[in-house]
């Protein structure tokens, strides 16, 4: 059974315990928080530095973008959590980059310049959560019809939809 005590939390603890990890080395400056839980490394970065963080981990060998998605922590603030999953083919490792966003400023720079693969995923997050990706080539709805009102995966959107 899972033991919550096995998790490492806090930048200092994680970065000391995993000092040789290439992602830890690459993000020693940019990281604001970190977590190592259930064998998964999560590094939190500021909203402004996400593109720089992606470029840094890409240079460190994490070559493959897997997915980006959001979690809505409504009514808590910061409300939105963006989770970027990035894989390294050579290291056979995966990291999760995390960005926290306030509901008043739900916008983040697009990483399509680093990985074009993020294009559809960012459109999906924009469509279903209403988070803006600045610099995205074509930020339009992807799942819902163009004239849809609201963002279905937000927690204040009812499961049955508005009737």
């Amino acid at each position: 059974m899972y033991d919550p005590a096995s998790a490492l939390t806090g930048k200092t603890f994680v970065f000391e315990a995993m000092a040789e990890n290439p992602a830890v080395v690459a993000l020693s400056e940019l990281a604001t928080d970190a977590k190592f839980d259930r064998d998964e490394l999560t590094i939190t970065v500021a909203r402004e530095s996400i593109v720089a963080a992606c470029e840094a981990v890409k240079a460190a060998g994490y070559n493959f973008f897997e997915t980006v998605t959001a979690v809505d922590w409504f009514p808590q603030e910061p409300r939105f959590q963006l989770s970027y999953h990035i894989l390294s083919h050579s290291l056979k490792q995966r990291i999760r980059l995390r960005v926290m966003l306030h509901s008043t400023a739900a916008s983040v720079p697009s990483i399509t310049s680093v990985w074009p693969a993020a294009n559809f995923y960012e459109r999906e997050v924009f469509d279903l959560f209403g988070i803006d990706f600045a610099g995205h080539p074509r930020l339009t709805r992807i799942m819902m019809p163009e004239n849809w009102e609201g963002h279905p995966l937000r927690k204040d959107y009812p499961v049955e939809g508005y009737r």
């Binding site: 998790a7 259930r38 998964e40 897997e66 997915t67 979690v71 989770s83 995966r94 999760r96």
Partner: peptide
């Protein structure tokens, strides 16, 4: 907590990202 589990499906990498808030229903 949150986990990401990827498996090799016939079409490629299929990953499930599950976030729990400690209740009996998945948060995301």
């Amino acid at each position: 907590g949150e986990v990401y589990q990827a498996v090799e499906s016939p079409r490629g990498e299929m990953g499930y990202y599950v976030v729990s808030d400690g209740t009996a229903k998945p948060y995301r």
